[in-house]
Amino acid sequence: MSLHPGGKKATEELLAFADFDAGAKILDAGCGVGETVRYLRAQGYDAVGIDKAISSEEAFIYQGDITALPFADNSFDAVLCECVLSICGETMLALKEFARVLKPLGKLIAADVYIIGNEKQKVLQIERYSGQGWEKMLREAGFSLLKKEERTAWMREHYLQALWQGTDLKEKWGWDENYRAQGYQTGYMLWWAQKTEG
């Protein structure tokens, strides 16, 4: 099964709106086993991937931390990050790294879990990962939001599929489950953002 909600359909939708030129340089941050990277390369993009827990023979897959990217400043046309930012430990750091490696007006396309928070709740973590919290983080990291799409159904589907197949989702979804355990609802969102100039 695909390792992120929506599977290939999600990657396609993320790419469709961004509309990159052939040969565009794309980084898949938190690429897992590199399925999406290979797909992107097959589509004619110059894609590379990085993941904390991967050791790959393939030259375009790097082992590394998305909060400390081993890439030069202004070197990518796009960064793709599916369902990784929320669990990478240092979301802000990672976003700033994305901004650093992106060329001016380069695009960040991200998909992740957000907390459908209670407005009255003033818990820092909840605010930070609410829909508004995510947008604030994007702004602070130097991005302007182009578009967002709610895709909670994908998450549900992904979750049920994993349940049926007996896949252990603790590592990937422990974050989500932790908030749901506290009584918050969670949703899934796609964001397209652009690196602000300068």
Partner: peptide, 9 residues
């Protein structure tokens, strides 16, 4: 712990 979980396993 089991009783205090709102949703989840």
């Amino acid at each position: 712990n089991n009783l205090s979980i709102a949703a989840g396993h």
